[in-house]
Design a protein around this nucleic acid. Structure first.
Lengths: 143, 143
DNA sequence: TGAGGTTGCTTGTGTTTTGCAAGTAAACAT
DNA sequence: ATGTTTACTTGCAAAACACAAGCAACCTCA
């Protein structure tokens, strides 16, 4: 499930991995809306088809952006979570959100939340990141 | 040449306009590499086919991201330039560049330039923007 | 003035990707 | 044991894409 790179231009590298209409929406659901399970992704507003969803989940996992583990509470399910590489895409998502909030007259982005993000994006990102400060973080470097 | 929106989520709005493998590469060429002409886009590293190129140029123009004007020096050519809406996508491009520079072991992004952008992204964006401070900027608000 | 080159597309044709509906298998619930 | 939930997979039609060729407007130079 590898993507072949068109070039090693950094814009191209990112687009070859997440430059489609679904991958960043899935990361939005995982990172911002706390979705974890396959069936939760099928319930998003935009209606992804299940074959595309399965394909993208495998691709994102294969490229180290998502982590997939069996749910020990209910072994027929899997829990998807962002890796550090996935969480590091938050600035991409946020810059898209700010751009759309500015130019989409019909945006549903809440204005007060947008203003908070604009004033202190680092604070917003830290708050989001703190939700995932669990088992999948790399070991802290010893002092 | 309109894109229909899947939803008015701000992530979706951005992806519906520029969430494909080519649009942001073209904006990279226009904004960062100073490309202006159709034939210059065909010469990029990644090799876009001409029908897709023509389609995307029309789409980006139709959505107010690019401006297309006839070149008065050579009337068989057109000059493409970013609108304010197009220039406002610079944060999206930059955040992708920083992410790829971090995770692509084979990136061609120059390390010293990346560090400068990381330390002061606003300064980099202003420098890039100053290249386009010409006729297509909106009139400054009267004092 | 007209022949050839440049530029910016458009048009075919085949391949790949996507969307939609239906089906399957493992785990679980009763 | 039977039905249900969950996570996919499969088949097929539609759309998007890549590649090659063609074409029209404009320019160049004789």
């Amino acid at each position: 499930m590898e993507s072949k790179n068109r070039s090693h231009c950094p814009v191209t590298y990112a687009l070859d991995l997440i430059g489609d209409k679904w991958s960043l929406l899935m990361l939005r659901d995982i990172i911002l809306f706390d979705k974890k399970y396959y069936h939760e992704f099928t319930q998003s507003l935009e209606g992804i088809s299940t074959n595309i969803l399965a394909n993208r989940l495998a691709m994102l996992e294969g490229n180290g952006i998502l982590l997939k583990v069996r749910d020990e509470q209910d072994k027929k399910r899997f829990i998807y979570s962002p890796t550090e590489k996935g969480l590091d895409l938050l600035p991409v998502i946020i810059s898209m959100v700010l751009w759309s909030a500015k130019y989409d007259a019909d945006t549903v982005a809440p204005l007060d939340e947008i203003k908070k993000i604009e004033q202190d994006p680092a604070a917003f990102m830290n708050k989001v990141r703190s939700k995932f400060s669990g088992e999948k973080m790399p070991d802290p470097v010893a002092l």
